[in-house]
Design a binder for these strands. Structure first.
Lengths: 219, 219
DNA sequence: ACGTGTGAACCGATTCACAGCA
DNA sequence: TGCTGTGAATCGGTTCACACGT
């Protein structure tokens, strides 16, 4: 029923995409455990996701299951990799090699998903020129030129908050289209640029809020 | 009009709380810049938040502005600190002192919000007993006992994904109520436990998805 | 009979629009 | 008049419920 290459009703949200990523991770794990075919019920029961959510998420991209049977994991994994685009390598750049930036350089989770930090930038003379985790740390002054030349479209910012906007501006000028921002500041970018924020302090603050409520309600 | 201590219609979401955290950060910055009174329009114009969203978010907790005038920043900051509970120090624990855990230990963003990592745990003999960023790294075997004794309610997990669930189980037994999970695995916990996930690989994957679309649509 | 795929119903969060107050 | 505070309208995402294919 699904015609290839057609565009389905594409009113899915970015949450759908994040869930697909979780489905992929889980499917791979199940495959490793020797499972071949699985129902949406079984696949989602450990994921805090309802089976109909899973089916709906997939339905935006095609029909990958067999009615009355379930999903072939090998097929499902291939389809998810294809949808997410992780079947080819993606180069990204990292700006700001402080504590967090250093940790990101060494994060194995990325290579597993075919994500490779191709360039790392900092403004600190003591860091520039050094090689960390196999990545040469380059001068932020050369960033725009280097990114333009490389054609890379994805960047992570792990600088202090007060320079994050400035960095984002340069990244956009250099042709970056997607930014994962770890700096606790709200970035202003043109409409066609996608920013995703990972704000650890704010996550913790919201946990604190609920921890506080817990005390009020239960002690 | 707002009676103290009463519970308003509390149908706000956790997104509301995260935004309050952003408002607080921004309000402090504005205060430092010498601003005293500000309208919801001006306050939100750099935050990707609509002014009515800001006002609605606050309305769950009281009336902090003056009609026709705006918000007194000093008052607003105090109220936000009070709502979020960051006017007192919060101790938390950190489990898993690998690259990311090490970065979290040194993250200045936390101390700014009165968040202090009181205990750090790892299972690696080479790390146990060492002091890192002023925090003594303790044996994970003693974790349950130590947390119970301390009464701490909030934990961060930065272990490899395959042990994260096991760690979460121990944390729950030890009395932890809120978990910030950096491990790329979905944790199963009792209903009264709050888990917040920071999944960097999945964030990046979703950016890749959109980067890919960008190519299809625009090149 | 079984489990998928999906339009329809539902629900919660955002946005609108305006009453209320300085 | 200007800006807040908030019910009402709207919008979007989740869940329901069932038709469909095997």
């Amino acid at each position: 029923m699904s015609k290839k290459g057609n565009s389905r009703k594409n009113n899915f949200s970015s949450e759908t995409i994040k869930r697909l990523s979780v489905y992929l991770r889980n499917s791979r794990k199940l495959k490793e455990q020797g499972v071949d075919i699985i129902s949406s019920d079984k696949l989602t029961e450990l994921l805090n996701v309802k089976p109909e959510q899973f089916r709906k998420d997939l339905s935006y991209f095609g029909e990958f299951g067999k009615r009355g049977v379930g999903y072939n994991l090998e097929r499902l994994i291939k389809e998810l990799e294809n949808i997410l685009g992780v079947n080819k390598q993606w180069n990204i750049v990292l700006v700001g090699i402080g504590k967090l930036g250093g940790a990101l350089l060494g994060f194995e989770g990325f290579s597993k998903f075919n994500i490779r930090i191709k360039h790392a930038f900092d403004s600190d003379e003591n860091k520039i020129g050094k090689i960390k985790k196999g990545v040469n740390i380059e001068d932020i002054k050369d960033m725009k030129k280097i990114i333009k030349k490389s054609g890379i479209k994805i960047a992570m910012i792990s600088t202090p908050p007060d320079v994050a906007q400035e960095i984002a501006n340069i990244l956009v000028e250099a042709g970056i289209k997607c930014i994962l921002n770890f700096a606790p500041s709200v970035l202003r970018v043109p409409q066609d640029i996608l920013v995703s924020n990972v704000d650890m302090a704010s996550e913790l603050e919201s946990l604190i809020f609920f921890a506080k409520q817990d005390k009020i309600n239960k002690v």
